[in-house]
Design a protein around this nucleic acid. Sequence first.
DNA 1: ACAATTCATGACAGCGCTGACATCACGTTG
DNA 2: CAACGTGATGTCAGCGCTGTCATGAATTGT
Lengths: 346, 346
Amino acid sequence: MESATLDDVASKAGVSAKTVSRVVNGERSVRPQTRERVLRAIEQLGYRPNLLARGLSGAHAYTVGLIYDNPNAYYIIAMQQGALTACDALNFGLQIRTCNSRSPALAEDLRNFVHRSRLSGLVLTTPVSERAASLRKLAAYDIPFVRILSAADDPDDEFPCVYVDDRDAAYAIVSHLLQLGHVRIGFLQGGKHHHASAERLKGYKDALQHYGVPLRKELMIAGDYVFDDGFRGARRLFDLAEPPTAIFGCNDEIAAGALAAAQAAGLHVPYDVSIAGFEDSPFSRHSWPPLTTARQRADVIVERATRMLISRINGNDIENEGFTPELVVRGSTAPPRPKRRQRKRR
Amino acid sequence: MESATLDDVASKAGVSAKTVSRVVNGERSVRPQTRERVLRAIEQLGYRPNLLARGLSGAHAYTVGLIYDNPNAYYIIAMQQGALTACDALNFGLQIRTCNSRSPALAEDLRNFVHRSRLSGLVLTTPVSERAASLRKLAAYDIPFVRILSAADDPDDEFPCVYVDDRDAAYAIVSHLLQLGHVRIGFLQGGKHHHASAERLKGYKDALQHYGVPLRKELMIAGDYVFDDGFRGARRLFDLAEPPTAIFGCNDEIAAGALAAAQAAGLHVPYDVSIAGFEDSPFSRHSWPPLTTARQRADVIVERATRMLISRINGNDIENEGFTPELVVRGSTAPPRPKRRQRKRR
DNA sequence: ACAATTCATGACAGCGCTGACATCACGTTG
DNA sequence: CAACGTGATGTCAGCGCTGTCATGAATTGT
């Protein structure tokens, strides 16, 4: 019933506890044949190292921290799931923490968190992962971390990361709208403090340019990644003399707000106006009509980042990796309805 | 920089480490005067016990597990938040785990989880908290737990719990609809394996009876706590010869489904049909129109439950406690629109 | 007033593991 | 062939805390 200890494995394999420890921690200097024997004993006894003892004894607690500053519950759950999967598989613990990414003391807060729990490293999600100055401080504190962030043109390779190609995904969404025949496409931007916002904006602009559609300032509205800003932004768009026939909301919550605004204004989605989001949150599936969006596998992305981090902690070299969200077409987008307003367009 | 240890506190207070340990753990046999001195030293040094060492040394890991089997991200995040608040305040660790509440091996799974991490106890949320047979096994395994559950008529006081008065809250919602003048009120029930479903049903029935409105079988539709069942259920209601003028969905996701179904059917909410949910999830705020619902403070409830659990682990007696969700009236409910159908009603 | 009991406190081992260092068996090298 | 790496393994202390038991002081009963 009681779980096996290092000593149990050691005597079963006929080696010292320290050697078993070496095998468990993947240290080099163990003869392959010995390693083999130890691994077999571990397998037979179903040995798993005791995190508490490891942490108490070692230089770090064999536990990573998942850091976020994000109000989106679905996103958080998915990220937690991914991190947990990786940690369970690799015998690491997981600590979960919110933070204030705009605090000037961000780096110090994180350092305190790491030191207090003797964390082995951090997985930083957006927008925490984008606070360059704080990251430099963290690195100076010798805290290992892996960040998840939007791919930038100039990939900032200073620190290891998993990047998400927001530009490409936004490009795909806007192209989809353009191909449907939309020309006046509203853009509800997300918070400026997320790099993803700039990337998605770039995808929007690039797609318009590629299809030879001029950019219209009045169709682009700033805001944050929240429902209310989607609602207000869309209302402003509908009030224009020439309102857009399609709206791209920078995430599903913004798009949900736009959807609500459309319905409040008596517009039919998608016949009067098409709406697209970004993220593939349950919102996008559970609205009416369901939202066209870009699927972002936060669980997979974070699992990857967590594995990279642990690998790095174990002293291995790691390589950055990228993901591109995938277009998901649902009922909220359709060809524009020909109508006077559109004909009038110069 | 390094955090203080028991020994630091001990020498500062002029006592042995063991005595400090006694104070920290609230053991009785310490003279008030000594305790005072130790507490002052702890305060001055900012001492916080090391969870790893405590867990390694002691009979349990000073860590509680939060167990859920629930697909609702908002709910989970709120619960985690509450549990974390309590654990941070009381110097306990927190482990978070999903499980399959319908597995016949539920109790064994939980026991393994507890043993593997040497958890001090469990906070069980619905519907895990309702699996009576498994709870008895857990109790037999000597695993302390506190459950969160729907208040039943016959309060099952066998195990400590925090209960939520679902019946009263549902009663309040249906009364609200009745007071608006609705008589044909559809009821979209949640999954049978949640006791809350039965309680909410009871609230529905009680309210109708109190207002002298006969119960109509055809207005009550079974389903689960998911969007799709809300959608399908509402569609069936709209297809009735005499459709309801109001619908009460057993949670916000069901209500969101009903809302989508109404919009898909070209019905205007709330003028053609009123819709109410339960839970006060962001769904209810971010739909159009926003949903009338019952606010359930999952964070507060779970924080309370966690504090109870830790108190119990520390050897104190605890008392059960109750919460009643609070009616929140938003734009999705309004008086029924007088129309032919209603006049025809016999 | 003295043994019997209770209370407050301390000494000490040890939880399971890792870090630092010691050891030993092999080549290598001049 | 002695001196010296180099790689594989072992020894041992100790991380910070709690459980167990020992100790001495205070309190009680007769």
